[in-house]
Structures are given as structure tokens and as C-alpha cells.
């Protein structure tokens, strides 16, 4: 009898833990990721996880990943940014043009970051002040920022100087030189962003603002400022990511980041971020970003026609959302007390 009770208690405990995990919105993406890695490893005859290929994946990952972190946080705050792909190109182009004029890297960097922050501020200010859907303001900014990138480049990209601090951003480091410095930046910023969302009062305000705006207002949260700050963070991360890509490629192409704004939204959604705000986690977005890189790379290695890439992203986006809502429903119907 006693042993039986003990068993029941353990079983209950396990069920409760399962329920908690099933309710985590990033779970579906994580399961998919592991599944796909195994699949690609098999399809590519073991090439997928070898050092050379990992180097390739981990080299681009920080660029989309940093953008996704910003987009995820902004979506949790209840807003959208479609201009990140353009800011991704504009920020490094600003730097390149300034450096071509003889500005030292550091000052060009500060100017580029300031420009990205300004764009984020304009996006946020217009959205909040005039109560326009951010879909509209940032759609406009998508065109404006892309156009500015091409205009300031003068038609063809300026040459980058030779004395760039590549040791800080692009050199290979780590065991077996598996990743670049950019990956370290990505991890540091990812951890900081994640802690900000889960541990700080500012993270609490972001969730409240996106979760239910009237309640956040009634509790005295400066929701307008919270939203504008989230826009600025999103924009500055996109700009920084763009600079990482330009330093990796060695040339500021005006077309980089095209279409990435939608990939970033897809990654956030795959990672469990709700479209209408309030729900989501930085780690989910990061998993979504990894998934996208893994699919892109895995399809190539498996010698699948690369035109299937967008199909896969689209399919995954829908699939992850459906799987999440199914999991949550199952979790809700589990009869355990929490």
C-alpha cells in the first residue's frame, strides 16, 4: 500500500514535469531541430556534423541569430519590425562610406550604431505616437532604409580599409577553430537578452506591454517608452549583425539582408513567439534561427534542389505553430494539479 502511494506520487510528479515542458512554446522547435540534425547527418553520410561544415553554419548563424533576438523581443512587446533586413545593410554601408572617407573604424562603428538606433526610434515613435500598426511604419522603413543604403553607396560598394579589427569579430577561435568571434558576441548578447527578459523588471514590462496593454498602462508602466526601447534594440541588433556579415564577406554589398526580415519573423514564430505579443522567449527565437540555418545547409549537403529551402521554412513555420497549439491543448487537458 505504502509503496503504491509512493509510486503514485512519483508518477504525479513526472506528469507535472511533462505538463510544464509541453507548455513551453519553444519545445516543438527544439524537438524538430534535434530530429533534423539526425536526419541531415544521415542523408549527408556524416558530413553534416563534421568540423568544416559546422564552421560554415556557425559562421552565418550569429548574423541571422542576432536579428532574430531583436525581432523576438519586439514581438513579445506586441510589435513588428519589417525594416531589419534593410537596417542590416544600411548600418555597415554607413560605416563603409565613413571609413572610405578616412574615419577610423571605432567612430564609424559608433555612427553606424547611432544611425540604427535612430531608425529604431523613428519606427517606434511613429508607431506609438500616431497609433499606426508597426507593420505599416516598418514596411515604409524597409523601403526607405534600403534605398538610403544604395544611395549612400553611390552605386557601387566602397572598398573596406585593410586595418579592420577582424580579431574582434570574424577570426576563427575556440576548440578546433570551430567558430568565429562573431559567435561569441552572439552567445553573450543572447544570454544577456535572455536574462533581461526573464530576470529584470524591464523584461517584465515588455511582457506586460505586449501581453495586455490596458493592464500594463493601468499599472503605471511607461508602455510607450518600453515599446520604443524594444524597437531601438531590434534595430541596433540588426545593424550590428549586418556589420558582422560585411566584415566576414569583406565587402559592403547593398543587397545583403533582403528577405531576412521575414526569415527572422519565421524563426521567432517557429521558436514559439506569439504574433499578438506577450508570449515567447529569446531562446525560442535562437532555436528558430538555428533551425533555419540547419535547413539551408542540410538541404545543400543532401543535394536537394535548393529551391526547396523556402518551402521548408514555410512548412516549418506553420507546422511549429500547429504543433505548439496542439501540445498546449494536450497539456491543458492533463489532469494534474500545478
Amino acid at each position: 500500500m505504502g509503496a503504491n502511494l509512493d509510486f503514485m506520487r512519483k508518477f504525479d510528479y513526472m506528469k507535472r514535469a511533462l505538463k510544464v515542458y509541453m507548455e513551453k512554446p519553444e519545445l516543438a522547435a527544439l524537438v524538430l531541430l534535434v530530429g533534423l540534425i539526425i536526419l541531415f547527418q544521415y542523408l549527408s553520410d556524416g558530413v553534416f556534423l563534421n568540423a568544416n561544415n559546422l564552421r560554415g553554419i556557425l559562421g552565418i548563424l550569429p548574423e541571422i541569430g542576432l536579428m532574430v533576438i531583436g525581432v523576438t523581443i519586439l514581438m513579445i512587446a506586441g510589435e513588428f519590425d519589417l525594416s531589419v533586413g534593410s537596417v542590416f545593410a544600411l548600418m555597415p554601408m554607413t560605416m563603409a562610406v565613413l571609413m572610405a572617407d578616412g574615419t577610423p573604424f571605432f567612430f564609424a562603428f559608433v555612427a553606424g550604431m547611432a544611425f540604427a538606433l535612430l531608425i529604431g526610434f523613428v519606427n517606434g515613435y511613429l508607431t506609438v505616437k500616431f497609433a499606426i500598426p508597426s507593420f505599416i511604419t516598418t514596411l515604409g522603413m524597409l523601403f526607405i532604409a534600403r534605398s538610403l543604403t544604395i544611395v549612400i553607396s553611390g552605386g557601387f560598394p566602397p572598398l573596406l580599409p585593410n586595418d579592420l579589427p577582424n580579431w574582434l569579430f570574424t577570426v576563427f577561435v575556440g576548440p578546433g577553430h570551430l567558430f568565429r568571434m562573431s559567435f561569441i558576441w552572439f552567445v553573450l548578447i543572447g544570454v544577456a537578452a535572455s536574462l533581461m527578459m526573464s530576470r529584470t523588471n524591464f523584461g517584465n514590462w515588455i511582457k506586460a506591454t505586449g501581453g495586455f496593454l490596458p493592464a500594463a498602462d493601468a499599472m503605471g508602466i511607461p508602455t510607450a517608452r518600453v515599446k520604443i526601447a524594444a524597437f531601438m534594440l531590434c534595430s541596433v541588433l540588426a545593424g550590428f549583425a549586418g556589420m558582422l556579415q560585411v566584415l566576414r564577406l569583406g565587402s559592403p554589398l547593398p543587397s545583403i539582408g533582403e528577405g531576412w526580415e521575414l526569415q527572422a519573423v519565421a524563426a521567432a514564430v517557429i521558436g514559439g513567439t506569439a504574433l499578438n505579443g506577450g508570449v515567447g522567449a529569446v531562446i525560442g527565437g535562437v532555436i528558430g534561427a538555428i533551425l533555419i540555418r540547419v535547413i539551408d545547409n542540410g538541404l545543400v549537403l543532401s543535394q536537394v534542389d535548393s529551391n526547396w529551402f523556402k518551402f521548408a521554412i514555410g512548412f516549418l513555420t506553420i507546422f511549429a505553430v500547429v504543433a505548439n497549439s496542439w501540445l498546449r491543448k494536450r497539456a491543458k487537458s492533463m489532469k494534474v494539479e500545478t
Binding site: A208, G211, P214, M219, G278
Partner: peptide, 8 residues
């Protein structure tokens, strides 16, 4: 109306 955020 409710002064709580349901998702928190």
C-alpha cells in the same frame, strides 16, 4: 475590465 495580464 481586468487589470491583469493573462499571459503572465
Amino acid at each position: 475590465y481586468n487589470s491583469m495580464v493573462p499571459t503572465m
